[in-house]
Amino acid sequence: MKHVLAIIVENKPGVLTRVSGLFSRRGFNIENIAVGETVTPGISRMTVTVEGNERTIEQVVKQLHKLINVIKVSNLASEPTVMRELMLIKVRAETGSRSDIQQIVETFRGKVVDVSPDSMIIEVTGNDEKLEAIKLLLQHFGIKEIVRTGKVALLRGSKVTRES
């Protein structure tokens, strides 16, 4: 099962290495990871998607807690969350196919953010399923390049993942 962990860390040098190194040496696989600052200065938040059973995840969480720079670890999979990922796709786009592409992008509430004589860059945000779906549709035109930010997530409602 996939779990999404929110890891609140002190923004100290090497903290990303400490976290990712722990995953690799204990044999846990990171599926994706996103890092950024929080509302509190000096505190960052990592969102890590990791595959594993309950026991594995319990070990991951406990081991993460042992890192001195880790302040808090929450498993978001057990609660309702809003989860998003942003993807940029550079797709082959000759004059003949542009309007078809445009239509797909609109259906997915994406945006065209760059146009050149034979290609376009599309920005789209959503969950896994949505991103996979648009990818599949655009494949037909020829995808040249894809980049994804990794998932970020927040608990629904007024509840927050505390930063201290």
Partner: peptide
């Protein structure tokens, strides 16, 4: 050495 010893120390520091 801080990189090398990350997995084998409880914590480590590079003083900047």
């Amino acid at each position: 050495i801080t990189g090398i010893t990350m997995p084998i120390t409880k914590h480590n520091y590079l003083v900047k």
